[in-house]
Design a protein around this nucleic acid. Structure first.
Lengths: 208, 208
DNA sequence: TGTCAATTGTCAGAGGCTGTCATTAGCCTC
DNA sequence: GAGGCTAATGACAGCCTCTGACAATTGACA
């Protein structure tokens, strides 16, 4: 944050992002136009598009941070951990540290509300899912390197990540639609779901 | 297909769909405007939107058929099969019968080419993923009923489907980017991936 | 054949997004 | 600290997706 110019840019971006999220969570994503956001921040519509590739990018900026944060967490896992255990620990610790990461930009409460907007807005959910898939590719690469296997010939890295990703997305959805909408609840749901993957894949459920 | 009116409608819809897919696969999805499609079929742009909710819906019409077909296949699985086995059999048989289902509307070759367009066009991929997630919810419901469990208290139906869906989406992607782009190759990939889910989730991969 | 209803075309307009060009404002050197 | 340089912004103009409204057309049916 050296020059005045950069500080101004930073402030404009943050104002746009904060305002956008505020409007999205109050009037809904579709109910908010880019003009609404630009007007509220008192910049031209054109300027908005110079900071964000589109409305969607502003709406998913926090999710983007979450993903980056999670990727880093996976990279920092001790090498002796088994792949799935490394992923598991990365998410759990991730949820802990995320609070500070988010709070540095916007109130966490806004993040949580925005999560529900994403989950309940078809176009946003679609974009979110696509980004998740892209993240999975990156994670698979990290795992492959950790374990010293070749992703092009060994499908296990991508498979493990696909399974893990499937479970995590289910967890996200359950969380955002449940009543206890806190990071602690997310932790608990994550643990519970990962514990039950085995049973869910077992022979039959009726013998229980 | 009783009245002349209905026949005309059917023909218009098919012409729009076929033309749309043809253009998408030759000029790309983004490179094709709705006007291009409407003009080629000699219909007003407004009419296109009376048949398809949007450009996207036309592009994913075949995938929609595939999903519906797969859902039906799952429903028809014998009740004694374990959940994952029922899903597995449904996909495998699904790929067999799909040929006829598609060919009734457009050449299968167009379907295959369109698959690659979907996979390589961000907005289409995003929409496709969202639809897949919606389909997963429906499948979970079918499984829960088969097994006589309550989806609201037992996470296993959704978990099993999430895992299965994750694997299938990975399979789709590998398939569409591989060189052997046939339904047989898809079958083989499906079998192979499902076989390796277990190993991928096991402790460590280095002991191999 | 004439009435009714469904299908379509035309027009107007909102909203997302991009290219272009002039204007403004911070930065840096002499 | 004046002037030149460059980055940031604003102001248009325009394309594309999608929707509502109304008129014109065309098949259905008595």
């Amino acid at each position: 944050m050296e020059t005045l110019r950069e500080r101004k840019k930073q402030r404009t971006r943050e104002a746009l992002l904060r305002t956008a999220l505020e409007l999205f969570t109050t009037q809904g994503y579709e109910g908010t136009t880019v003009d609404d956001i630009a007007d509220a921040v008192d910049v031209s519509q054109r300027t908005f598009f110079r900071y964000f590739a589109g409305k969607e990018e502003a709406a998913l900026a926090l999710q983007e941070m979450t993903v980056a944060h999670f990727l880093q967490a996976v990279r920092e896992r001790p090498p002796h951990e088994a792949p799935m255990e490394a992923l598991r620990q990365a998410v759990l610790e991730g949820w802990d540290a995320l609070n500070d990461v988010i709070e540095a930009v916007v109130p966490v409460e806004l993040y949580l509300r925005m999560y529900q907007v994403v989950e309940s807005t078809p176009v946003l959910l679609a974009a979110h899912l696509r980004r998740s898939v892209e993240a999975e590719e990156a994670i698979a690469r990290i795992l492959a390197e950790r374990e010293g296997v070749d992703m092009d010939t060994d499908p296990r890295p991508r498979l493990a990540v696909a399974v893990f990703g499937g479970v995590m997305r289910l967890t996200e959805r359950q969380w955002s639609s449940g009543e206890d909408f806190s990071l602690d609840a997310m932790r608990a749901l994550t643990v519970s779901h990962l514990e039950q993957v085995g049973p869910a894949l077992s022979e039959s459920w009726r013998t229980r």
